[in-house]
Amino acid sequence: MDLNEFEHKEYRSFNDFFKRSLLTESRKIDSVAESLISPCDGLLSVYKIDERSLIPAKHSIYRMEDLLENKELADSYNDGWCFVFRLRPSDYHHYCYIDHGNVRSRKRIPGILHCVRPIAMEKYPVYVQNTREYTLIDTENFGQVVQMEIGALLVGKIQNSRHQGYVRRGTEKGYFEFGGSTVIILIQKEQATPELAVWMLSKLGQEVEVKMGQKIGCKGN
Score class of each variant (00 low, 15 high):
39 P>M: 06
22 L>C: 10
23 L>Q: 08
32 V>N: 14
34 E>N: 03
18 F>Y: 15
32 V>I: 15
13 S>D: 12
31 S>G: 05
17 F>S: 12
41 D>S: 00
29 I>C: 13
27 R>D: 13
29 I>Q: 12
22 L>W: 04
20 R>S: 11
15 N>C: 09
24 T>K: 11
39 P>D: 10
12 R>N: 13
34 E>V: 09
38 S>E: 02
37 I>S: 12
33 A>Q: 07
30 D>E: 15
20 R>W: 11
35 S>V: 09
37 I>N: 11
26 S>T: 12
13 S>K: 07
35 S>Q: 03
10 E>V: 12
32 V>H: 14
24 T>Q: 09
32 V>R: 15
33 A>K: 01
11 Y>S: 07
36 L>W: 08
26 S>Q: 06
33 A>S: 07
21 S>M: 04
13 S>W: 01
31 S>E: 07
24 T>D: 13
37 I>L: 15
14 F>Y: 15
35 S>A: 11
10 E>W: 09
23 L>S: 12
20 R>P: 04
16 D>G: 09
16 D>T: 00
29 I>F: 06
41 D>Y: 08
18 F>A: 05
28 K>N: 02
31 S>V: 00
31 S>H: 08
31 S>F: 10
41 D>G: 05
32 V>M: 12
12 R>Q: 14
28 K>F: 06
31 S>M: 02
20 R>K: 10
32 V>P: 05
19 K>Y: 11
42 G>N: 06
40 C>G: 12
22 L>K: 04
27 R>P: 14
14 F>D: 14
24 T>S: 12
15 N>D: 15
31 S>Q: 04
42 G>I: 06
